[in-house]
Amino acid sequence: MTALVQRARMDDTLAEAVGPPPVVSLRAVTRVYPGVKPVEALAPTDLDLNPGEFFSVVGPSGCGKSTLLDVLSGLGRPTSGTVTFNGQAVDGVVPEGVGIVFQEDASFPWLTVRDNVAFGLKHSTVPADESQRRVDHALRFMGLADFAGAYPAQLSGGMRQRVCIARTLVTRPSLILLDEPFGALDQQTRLLMGDELLRLWRETGATILLITHALDEAAMLSDRVGVMSARPGRFIDMVETGWPRERDSSIVSDPRFGEITARLWSRLRAESLRAMGAQGPGGGR
């Protein structure tokens, strides 16, 4: 008994010494897609996400970015290695406290905007009045209040993606995973959505992992950017941006923004060429 208490105290002092434990930990995680010719999507990968961090992943197309999100979220199982979320092992089930926003429009076309957002809490234990409040807040926060009664088909792509983000927000996730959420949007909308993402990140205090193919997006939004290699994916660089927590898209005029983007590109250029070469001229399938 006393030994256990002592052990716990030791752990506490240890934690104080190295900072809070990571929200997510990947240890030697790999993912191989079986088949006649098995595809190694993820080479052994280690990754720690710190609480409240904005972390982006960039990499050439087909490098396993989405696979990383899959195993990290519990949507997919790693072939080997371990994934933990808040110290609990993640194994094929998305843990509570994790919210995911996909690249494709995942809003439900048969529900109004309000019902779409409320769907996020439909099976939770949150009381009705509290859930009502959260839905109202999320609608206002994402600028959807005027469209609460509209159907997704009546909205633009950017607005529909906001609906999906709002649907995730109502659950108050401590970790938000975004898989190229703005990939299908035009450049101006993407910049503005980036600002909104930063606002959301500050207000919720959540940890964010953003997968993107846009280097400027990663450089502008993140505290830290992980650069992935061509397949099989692994991290070949970690870039600390050093931006203040209060920031928005105006930092694109900061000279450091150019430096960061340039460094990301210099690390990625060879990898992208390799990925293109692997797919042959004329691009991927």
Partner: peptide, 26 residues
């Protein structure tokens, strides 16, 4: 659309809930 089913898994719906609340209306 597969992303609707992925979204259902991301929201931790059971198989039954997924069938009744996502699959059927879709």
């Amino acid at each position: 659309s597969p992303v609707l089913l992925r979204a259902a898994r991301a929201m931790r719906l059971t198989r039954r809930q997924t069938a009744l609340e996502v699959l059927v209306p879709a």
